[in-house]
Design a binder for these strands. Structure first.
Lengths: 203, 203
DNA sequence: GTCTATAGCCAGATAGAC
DNA sequence: GTCTATCTGGCTATAGAC
């Protein structure tokens, strides 16, 4: 390995550590309450050094979001490569992953109202591309699941798509975890059931 | 009416105007992005005057939350007084109300992670009492709806309760509204259906 | 690229006159 | 109780030495 690429490797490892810290802090406190000082302390470097890697707090958050989307996209690829799974099973697996990540404290939560942050995200080609690619893949499965009669065909596909996405910031798992009477696995199972099967009894 | 009570009336009217502003700003921007200066400007008084009515920004938010809970409790009372409604219909009406309030920009959203705010809310007897009273009423209807076979009896009642509560901060209505191809009424209907009937098709 | 130190700003809260 | 003016602290971001 050439010296240059070795240094690049070290750089990427460090930036990955930064993004991991940001990811956890975003999941724990959200964007507004997360401070750059905390990130620096968590990574173990000086704040000024952070700004050599990322231009702003928004850029930090955007990087964390891109990494989450990359991991989500990787999951979609895995699921797409398993022909034994029905489209419905794939959608369920995606929702399950979002819930699991959230319970593990690995799902960053962003305030959708912060306009500077929105601008940064929408200005990031990596973010927008990943989001579109994932939406397209999910949309395909949704249409297929509706055609086969597994997903309610009278629901507009967007409703199904957003409902799956929304599991990433569903407050119900947090409430149930705070209650303390269910394991994480049980919580995931219960929320998945309430989402896909609904609150109403099935005859 | 005595002069004292007239002054008290004026005071309450003013405080109600303050709480209305806070309510809208909380719904629009959330707690962290809402500034006390904005509240003062919106009400049309000086910031220092605000602090004569409420001791802190957290107290402002708590007052807004209490008023929302009061309105919710009033709805519960109305629903309880209509014997023709099934428990399921009542639960649906509550979820519908939460969605409608949210689409109208009347549902304040709080960051559940902000500890100073949590402390203020949990320290407010009015807030805690209303929350408990409402939860009890809803819990009663849930148990009844499960007994009659309308709500899935295999779901723990807490899951149903939290799922209904969560409609107040569901991001799906906002996404659908941003999409621009559904009316508010259609959005409420679609989200209600996905919540109660689930994404999966019903045979 | 890393650090210490600090600039600059903004928001929550208060002082004090009226 | 209302106002103007100000204090205070914390946060983002940067300067400049090494």
């Amino acid at each position: 390995m050439a010296r240059g690429s070795f240094r690049e490797h070290l750089l990427r490892v460090r930036e990955d550590a930064i993004i991991s810290s940001v990811n956890h802090l975003l999941a724990e406190k959200g964007f507004d309450l997360m401070t750059v000082d905390e990130v620096a302390a968590d990574v173990g470097i000086a704040k000024a050094s952070l700004y050599k890697h990322f231009a702003s707090k928004e850029a930090l958050a955007a990087a964390a979001m891109v990494r989450v989307l990359e991991r989500g996209a990787a999951l979609l690829d895995e699921l797409a490569a398993r022909p034994e799974l029905t489209p419905l099973a794939r959608l369920r697996a995606v929702a399950r992953w979002a819930l699991e990540q959230q319970l593990l404290g690995e799902m960053p939560t962003l305030p959708s109202q912060n306009s500077t942050l929105r601008a940064e995200l929408l200005g990031s080609k990596a973010y927008v591309d990943l989001l579109m690619k994932s939406s397209d893949q999910l949309g395909e499965w949704i249409v297929q699941a509706q055609a086969s009669g597994d997903i309610d065909p009278t629901l507009p596909p967007e409703v199904v798509l957003y409902t799956v996405f929304a599991r990433a910031c569903d407050p119900v798992p947090g409430f149930l975890k705070a209650g303390g009477q269910f394991s994480d696995e049980q919580i995931v199972e219960l929320v998945l059931r309430s989402c896909f099967d609904g609150l109403r009894a099935r005859s």
